[in-house]
Design a binder for these strands. Structure first.
Length: 301
DNA sequence: AAGGAAAGCAACCGCGAGGGC
DNA sequence: TGCCCTCGCGGTTGCTTTCCT
């Protein structure tokens, strides 16, 4: 037996809202509020709509002070930073952007920002609808596109916080209800473990600015809490290095992500001593080790 | 100019969480 | 304690608009 439907599907209207419906819903809520019951609301005001649909329409469109489109660079940075740290938890991300809805941010990420970060943007989308100054059109993307790193200046101040360090980001996100894969919690979150692409190893030889050739200390690193977003995997090149005697991979990316997370190390195996991980010689299950201070490293030549 | 492809976005759907009884 | 109901979230769909050939 399936779940009972939230409304009588046969008697509700679907599809785009008419101006009349918008006006009815808006004026009622402005005068009376939602009454704490979205399911009963449409019947109360004579709308042939599902309560969930009314709620969505109000939250995403009719509510006062809603902004549509025109995302600023700063908003891009905030979305980018938060997505990398907590993933697709759009409501938490939206809570940091006044006037933005989770749906708007989700659409913006999926249709534009992700491509922008990946350097795959084919055209200036701001001019796509209603714009005027048309940029020179880009050629169709090739199989191996030349990446255009997105200019992502640091730090990313959000309501008085600087997200230039992982600790402050973590504190704010926990305050907002965020969780991390290394927090004690009853459920185990999905783990993002990359498949090392052998053809990428040995490309872009590295110059590590350390005394011991290609040797990295764990104290140089901090944990990236939520793993590395899989959609950026194709942008990452891995190079073999040693961390405390263990074989690891140094990762770097040519995308805008490099501005956000910097270079990082992916250890297939980690010792018990690192940051209290209880994974003695077990595969890494929590994320990646990012450099606290990427000045310690020279970029790939 | 026209038709197909791609992009953008509003809206829908199903599920999990949480509160009330 | 368990069931029911509503809310809120994130993924997905499908329509519209714009671009490209």
């Amino acid at each position: 037996m399936g779940r009972a439907p939230c409304c009588d599907k046969a008697n509700v209207k679907k599809g785009p809202w008419s101006p009349e419906e918008d006006a009815t819903l808006k004026s009622y809520i402005e005068q009376h509020g939602t009454g704490g019951n979205w399911i009963a609301l449409p019947q109360k005001i004579g709308l042939k709509r599902c309560g969930k649909s009314c709620r969505l329409r109000w939250l995403n469109y009719l509510r006062p002070n809603i902004k549509h489109g025109g995302f600023s660079e700063e908003e891009d940075h905030i979305i980018c930073s938060l997505y990398i740290s907590i993933g697709s938890r759009w409501s938490i991300i939206a809570a940091q952007l006044p006037g933005r809805t989770d749906n708007d941010i989700k659409n913006y990420w999926n249709t534009r920002l992700k491509k922008k970060l990946l350097g795959k943007q084919r055209k200036d989308s701001n001019t796509r609808r209603g714009g005027s100054a048309a940029p020179p059109p880009l050629k169709q993307e090739t199989k191996n596109p030349v990446m255009t790193p997105y200019n992502c200046p640091q730090p990313y101040p959000i309501q008085g916080h600087s997200f230039n360090d992982q600790a402050s980001l973590r504190r704010l996100l926990m305050k907002l209800g965020g969780r991390f894969s290394d927090d004690p919690q009853p459920t185990v979150e999905a783990v993002v473990v990359p498949s090392i692409q052998p053809n990428l190893i040995d490309q872009s030889p590295l110059l590590l600015n350390t005394e011991n050739n290609n040797n990295i200390a764990s104290s140089d690193l901090s944990l990236l809490p939520n793993g590395f977003p899989p959609e950026f995997e194709e942008m990452v090149s891995y190079n073999p290095v040693k961390m405390e005697g263990m074989d690891c991979f140094y990762g770097s990316t040519s995308s805008a992500l490099s501005d956000v997370v910097g270079p990082f190390v992916y250890p297939p195996m980690v010792p018990t001593s690192l940051n209290g991980y209880d994974h003695e010689q077990q595969p890494m299950q929590g994320g990646y080790w990012a450099f606290e201070d990427d000045q310690q490293l020279m970029p790939p030549q």
